[in-house]
């Protein structure tokens, strides 16, 4: 990697002031950024170390306020936290399925939500791809077994986070702080399909930081599951993942949130499937219809058509296990 200056942030305000300077980037766990620096995809002149912001390492919970995770909480801490395991189990499952123990000890939740795509064209300096400001998407007629089947346009990369689908299924919100901003947005709103003028997968500006992730306490009769299909048993990004959270009233499904990972540039909320499920009694046929609806409109490329039956299979399995 190229040389850079390294500055410790003393508080959020000064961190944001520093990040407002040109060629400056934030670093926390570094598990994503260092890869980009080593590949020389980016060459910031200055890195602002956020790990010195001790307040952002806290995990707080109360039944009323729900779960509050500082942005610097590591994936390993989430995976092991007893309250998260018990009451927000999809989140613990998603954290445990990510990367490797070493990476989970380093990687933070804030960084995980903001990570860049793993697309092998994006990550390789030899390809001036559209997402990096170039002319074309090399995956479109190239090697695309890991790429998007839903909603892709100029870029076919998928959002790699395991935690994002789980947190969206849990209806999480974020506290975001910027130079003239301190507010709350839903996690779902964070993500955006990259467009001609905004070739990014989130709406965050370079000097805006996620400082806290807030997760409301799920209803008593809610159940959730995170299923992830990988090419091997660990240390893999999802081929397809499914985060499903259902709550029941009697035998009927009162509420359903279904979010797919690995299929689109954003964590993919399967709203049609949710509509099919809400108000219904569970049946195999219902699960089948919901699974079908989750991938309706899929437009696979040459090598990723397998993601369609895979996504269907995972949705069906998730629903069956929640109903069972």
């Amino acid at each position: 990697m190229r040389s850079f200056e390294y500055v410790n942030a003393t508080n959020i305000k000064t961190a944001i002031a520093l990040l407002s300077e040109p060629a400056t980037e934030a670093i926390a766990g570094g598990t994503d950024l260092l890869g980009e620096l080593k590949a020389r995809l980016r060459s910031p002149r200055r890195l602002v170390n956020l790990k010195t912001l001790a307040k952002l390492r806290e995990i707080r919970y109360s039944p009323q306020a729900g779960l509050r995770l500082g942005a610097l909480v590591t994936l390993a801490e989430i995976e092991r936290h007893p309250v998260i395991r018990e009451r927000f189990s999809i989140l613990a499952q998603a954290a445990a399925s990510a990367a490797t123990p070493q990476l989970r000890n380093m990687g933070t939740i804030g960084g995980n939500l903001c990570q860049k795509p793993r697309c092998w064209y994006y990550r390789n300096k030899l390809f001036p791809c559209w997402l990096k400001g170039g002319e074309k998407c090399f995956a479109e007629d190239g090697e695309n077994k890991y790429h998007a089947i839903l909603g892709a346009d100029r870029c076919h990369a998928v959002h790699p986070s395991d935690l994002a689908p789980a947190l969206i299924a849990l209806d999480a919100t974020l506290r975001v702080v910027g130079p003239d901003l301190d507010g709350e947005i839903s996690l779902e709103e964070l993500y955006t399909k990259p467009t001609e003028s905004h070739r990014q997968m989130t709406i965050l500006g370079p000097n805006e930081l996620i400082v806290e992730i807030r997760v409301p306490t799920p209803k008593k009769a809610a159940r959730g599951i995170y299923l992830k299909a990988m090419e091997r048993q660990s240390w893999s990004f999802a081929l397809v993942s499914v985060a499903a959270q259902l709550s029941f009233e009697g035998e009927r499904i009162a509420d359903a949130r279904l979010v797919l990972g690995g299929v689109a540039a954003i964590p993919w909320r399967a709203k049609d499937s949710e509509r099919i499920l809400i108000g219904q009694k569970f049946s195999e046929e219902l699960a089948e219809r919901a699974a079908e609806a989750a991938v309706a409109g899929a437009q696979p490329l040459r090598e990723n058509a397998y993601k369609v039956p895979l996504a269907k299979g995972l949705v069906k399995r998730a629903l069956e296990s929640l109903a069972g």
């Binding site: 793993r118 092998w120 064209y121 390789n124 030899l126 390809f127 090399f138 007629d141 190239g142 090697e143 240390w235 990004f237």
Partner: peptide
């Protein structure tokens, strides 16, 4: 995995 259009090895790492 070699990119069919450019001959570049795209999984030149232990991630992929």
């Amino acid at each position: 995995v070699v990119d069919r259009n450019t001959g570049v090895v795209v999984n030149d790492n232990l991630e992929n």
